[in-house]
Design a protein around this nucleic acid. Structure first.
Lengths: 129, 129
DNA sequence: TTACATGCAAATGGTTTGCAAACAT
DNA sequence: ATGTTTGCAAACCATTTGCATGTAA
C-alpha cells in the first residue's frame, strides 16, 4: 500500500525521505484529515514540509485534496469512497458503495473522458434528527 | 427566482438591501463564480459586504459554496446540477442530468436523512484529449 | 559528490473583525 | 428612535516563498 506510493515517488524522480514517508503513513491512518490532524501524526516533520509533501503527493495522484465546507482535508486517492456530511453537527462519515449509475452519465456520450468522481451527500445524521 | 430568495431573507428577519439584491442578481447571472467574479458584477458593493452577504445567503440555503480545487466558488442552490472538471485546463462545465441511482444509496437504509448532494466528475475535456 | 529536500523566518493573500457612520422601519 | 447594515482599516490565519543548511541516492 505505502510501497506503491513510495514506488510512484521514486518513479517520478523524487526521493523517498523519512519526512515524506511519515506523512504517507499519517495519511494512511485515517480518512479526510485536516492538515493539523496529519501534522499531529508526524510531529517531527516541519509544517512547510507537510504542505510541500501533500502538494507533491497530490500531483502524483496519490492523495486527494477536498474541501467539505470547513478547511482543506486530505485522503489517500486509492480508496474510493464517498462522504455523508451532517449539516447539523458537521460529522463526516463514509460509504463505499457507489450509487452512480454509469449509464446515466451524460458525459459518456460527449467527448469528456471521465477519470474519477467525487460525491458528497448532505443531510442530518442519526444523532441529530 | 430572485423574488423567492428575497422573500426568504425577509422571512428570516433580514433586510433586503440594495447591496444584497445586487449580490443576488450577480449570482443569478452565472454558475460557480469566484468571489472576484461576483464582485465584478456588483462594483458598488464593498468587499466585506459581499463576503457577509454570501455568508448570510449560505445560511439561508440560498447559495451553495463549493471548492473545486482552486479557491471558493458560489452558486445558487436552487438549480441543481453537477460539475465536470477538466484536470488539464481547469475548465468547469455543468450537466443537469443526475446519474445518481437513489436505490443504490446505502444511506436510505440507515438513519441519515439526505437533504442534498453534490457530484463532481474529473477527467479531460474534449479540447484537451 | 551533488542535486534535491528540509525548515526556519518572513512575505503573502484571502477572509474576518472592530468600530463609526449611514440606513431601514 | 432603535436596531440593522455598510465599509474602511486593521487584525487574522492558512499557505507560500527565500534562502541557508542538511541529506538521500
Amino acid at each position: 500500500m505505502l510501497e506503491a506510493a513510495i514506488g510512484k515517488m521514486r518513479g517520478g524522480g523524487y526521493k523517498a525521505t523519512p519526512q515524506r514517508t511519515a506523512v504517507l503513513r499519517a495519511l494512511a491512518e485515517e480518512q479526510h484529515q485536516s492538515l493539523e490532524e496529519i501534522r499531529a501524526r508526524c510531529p517531527g516533520v516541519g509544517l512547510v514540509t507537510v504542505y510541500r509533501t501533500l502538494d507533491l503527493l497530490g500531483e502524483l495522484g496519490i492523495v486527494r485534496r477536498l474541501d467539505l465546507g470547513d478547511g482543506a482535508r486530505y485522503e489517500m486517492a486509492e480508496d474510493h469512497h464517498h462522504h455523508a456530511i451532517c449539516e447539523s453537527c458537521g460529522d463526516i462519515s463514509e460509504f463505499e458503495k457507489c450509487p452512480l449509475d454509469p449509464t446515466l452519465l451524460p458525459l459518456e456520450a460527449s467527448d469528456f473522458e471521465v477519470r474519477s468522481h467525487s460525491l458528497e451527500v448532505y443531510g442530518r445524521c442519526a444523532a441529530c434528527r
